[in-house]
Write a protein that binds this DNA or RNA. Structure first.
Lengths: 232, 232
DNA sequence: CCAAAAGTGTTCTTTATACACCCATGT
DNA sequence: ACATGGGTGTATAAAGAACACTTTTGG
């Protein structure tokens, strides 16, 4: 193939890479893809790719999420830009990293689009990754943990309707510490950001059926604009 | 000049831009430079420039801080990467933005290095800026305000030795709200991150001379590593 | 009737807030 | 002596932490 784009000074290539978080089997997991090409062929990596001249970094991340993981309309946020000189063995590549939070509902309908070589891996058992992707993933996890306690992003990882105990378990999983169940319930409900939906049992499980709730985004945005501090 | 770097696909240029905060005359200010070349010749802009192939973005930001503002060894942190398609009228330019906090001590010895066309502007009266630099500067200010209340970065904006009332005034200025002087003093001192230095008067000012303190970075790092929550 | 998960209140401790007077210096 | 800024304590209110029993379902 002919090389045809010429510049006065050398230029780094720019990519976006995306750390995709999801909850599966009551565990926080990352969606990784298996590389089909060199370098690092056969290694697990974060979904990512080169940015085109006609898209912003945000658009690029969203496009790659759809192309490589079949995911759309999810919470996505810029994480950090990684620019170490040797992070790609081929040449200078700067990566604008993002992280995304997906829930079962957003993923189910597009499960068929999945590349065979895409799979969820528990964050506690991340395999060896290509490039500096482990470093990126660890940075994303720290950001998620930090953000969880002062912004209600936990909801993004659960189905549209969920029980308080699901949310409680999610928080304990991500923060890696116990939270008193009664205090957690009180706190969350006192924010008035959850709307009661109806009673429903988790199919076939014993125990009292949990009340389901859904997150009221409208209320949340109203509160954030007039200054609001969410804490744990 | 001959163009000589050729690639298979088009590539965006990558720059870093730096939002430099400093306190001058009891006000929070930004250091801006006046552009000597097109585009936006004669307009105020954030110090910035193209990243070289032999430096990381952090190194680039530090180099530009030195070259364009004569500042070295300051607090610097990546802010966000801006990638709108039209942010530079010439061509596609992606900017990795940083923000820096400098104090009088760090600036004084290099004041002579200053470009004539560099000047401090109050954040409340930022002139029209080149590119999307106003947007970058506003993003940086929000980040600074957010960060100030849970990480003790305020110290970076003051001379090595400072009084509690200087710090108090700094917080009020940046957060744009009143903080009770007694409660602020209690809170700050209860963290045990400030070391009393000696009594000293601010030359020629009336009033009781203030006790000077300095920030103990070692203690701070010990606390952060074993989990520590600083709050306002 | 037993196991499993949901729901719920009170006490105690810690932290945040509100508030006013005296002190040391320069002029 | 007076104007200016520095230093300090207490009482009340709010928030956080600790803690156990009852209810509803499936098997």
């Amino acid at each position: 193939m002919k090389k045809q784009f010429t510049y006065q000074y050398p230029r780094a290539a720019v990519t976006t890479d995306c750390v995709i978080f999801g909850v599966r089997e009551n565990e926080l997991k990352l969606l990784l893809v298996k590389r089909a090409i060199q370098p690092y062929k056969g290694k697990w990596a974060l979904p990512g790719g080169f940015i085109s001249m006609k898209e912003t970094a945000d658009e690029c991340a969203q496009r790659l999420l759809k192309e490589e993981a079949g995911i759309r309309n999810v919470f996505i946020e810029q994480l950090y830009t990684f620019s170490n000189l040797k992070r790609d063995p081929r040449e200078r590549v700067i990566s604008i990293a993002y992280y995304a939070l997906v829930n079962a509902g957003q993923l189910q309908p597009v499960a068929g689009h999945f590349n065979d070589a895409a799979a969820w891996h528990p964050v506690k058992k991340i395999p060896s990754l290509a490039f500096d992707h482990r470093h990126i993933a660890e940075t994303a996890l720290k950001r998620l943990q930090g953000k969880l306690v002062y912004q209600p992003i936990g909801f993004e990882l659960l189905p549209r309707q969920f029980s308080v105990s699901q949310l409680h378990h999610l928080y304990e999983t991500i923060l890696e510490r116990k939270l008193d169940r009664r205090n957690f319930t009180k706190k969350i409900l006192s924010m008035k950001l959850l709307e009661r939906v109806k009673e429903k049992r988790i199919t076939g499980a014993p125990g009292k059926p949990a009340t389901l709730f859904q997150f009221n985004k409208g209320k949340y945005h109203k509160l954030t604009t007039k200054g609001f501090s969410f804490q744990l």
